[in-house]
Amino acid sequence: MNYIVKRTAQAVFTVFAVITLSFVIIRLLPGGPADYLRAQLIQRSGGSLTQEQINQRIASQTNIAVDEPLYVQYVDYMASILRGDFGTSVWYSNEPVIAVLGPAIPWTVFLMATSLFIAFVLGVTLGAFMAYREGSGFDVGSTGVSLLTNSVPYYVIALLLLTFLGYRMELFPTGGQYASETTPGLNLEFVLSALHHGALPILSLVLASFGGWALNMRGNSIRVLGEDYLRVARLRGLPERRIALRYVGRNAILPMYTGLLIAIGFMFGGSIILEEIFAYPGVGYYMIQAINARDYPVMMGAFILITVAVTIGVFIADVTYGWIDPRAEGGGTRESY
């Protein structure tokens, strides 16, 4: 229990520190968001707005009252973030940040979770076969392919797929979440359209990441295959399938559990470049647009959202690993970082 309390406190402190950092970036850096918004408001209004009106608009968009003392600004900013109020977007017609990023979250989760699931299952399966056929032609060839795909950045694969399958062969859409003529809802036409539009981004991530999972699974399985308890299991006459699934596969996949949950946490951060390449309106796409438009409230909202997702992923991995693997040490010696 003390261990869980300690890890919970660490996770809360991490999120608290990131929100504090975002406040510092917004308020204290020269030429930061407040100064930029002030210049924009003065330019757009042609001098018709008073200083008080400008300060009020800056406060509504950034959650910071620039005419208040620094400690008051910080308390107000923290309180608004804890309420889920990330300010108002400058670029997207003065909409609340949560209204801009909220509808994009399910699409990012769909894209990244699907690709992560496929890559993990494919990599684990391939790695297990590679370990059982260690030294064979299949093992050598699969290891080479895994090393190659794992070495190529996903955005390079994404650009190649987009160029050849999207533009030249026109087999897949080159942007959007679904066809414009499709009515969103739980219907077959919409589901198929969403899968069609997400196929290339998903394939890009799968091709770039399954090799890493396969190599990890291969190494873990080979190590487990050399354990003495497997020899005892074979001497007892246990079926080879049971040995492969319950003894080898189960123990080889456990060290990959932490990496899987951390990868889930990094879903939002890893989507930034991919969604921009495929013009796929997710959290990463809107973050890039906010950076280009200097829409600081949206940018900071996305930054906080990504940090919270990563922190939660690491926290769940750290707390639950001891439950799924009783061999893990308890107390303060267990770490997943």
Rank of each mutant, 00 (worst) to 15 (best):
A11M: 13
Y132P: 12
L188T: 09
I98S: 08
I81M: 05
L225Q: 11
L230N: 04
V224T: 13
P153K: 04
M112E: 10
R218I: 00
V319N: 10
Y178F: 11
T50P: 01
V298Y: 06
A214N: 04
T320H: 04
R44W: 11
W91G: 14
G332M: 15
G237D: 03
V191Q: 11
R223F: 09
E134N: 12
A65D: 12
Q51C: 10
G137E: 06
A244L: 14
A39L: 07
A131I: 03
A194P: 06
W91L: 15
A194R: 10
I277G: 06
G211S: 03
Q289I: 13
Y321E: 13
A179N: 02
A39Y: 07
G322A: 12
V224Y: 11
W213P: 00
M299Q: 08
P103N: 04
V145Y: 01
I202P: 01
P239L: 00
L161P: 00
V66I: 10
A79G: 14
A302Q: 06
V90E: 03
Q10N: 05
L147Y: 00
E181K: 11
R38Y: 14
E68N: 06
I243P: 01
I58K: 02
Y71E: 14
G212Y: 00
F86Q: 05
L261Y: 03
L192K: 08
T311H: 11
A263D: 13
G282T: 07
P106Y: 14
L238E: 10
N251D: 06
I243G: 06
Y337H: 15
D228Q: 15
I26M: 08
L207A: 09
F268H: 04
M299N: 06
F23E: 03
Y74H: 06
I324C: 11
V72C: 05
F278Y: 08
T20H: 11
L165G: 02
L37I: 12
V5S: 14
G265Q: 02
G176E: 01
V310D: 09
L305N: 08
R57L: 13
Y178D: 03
A17K: 06
D85S: 08
M300F: 05
Y178V: 05
A65V: 07
G219K: 02
V232M: 11
A65N: 09
A252Y: 10
S89W: 02
L126V: 12
G123K: 03
G137N: 06
R83Q: 15
F110W: 14
S193H: 04
G176C: 00
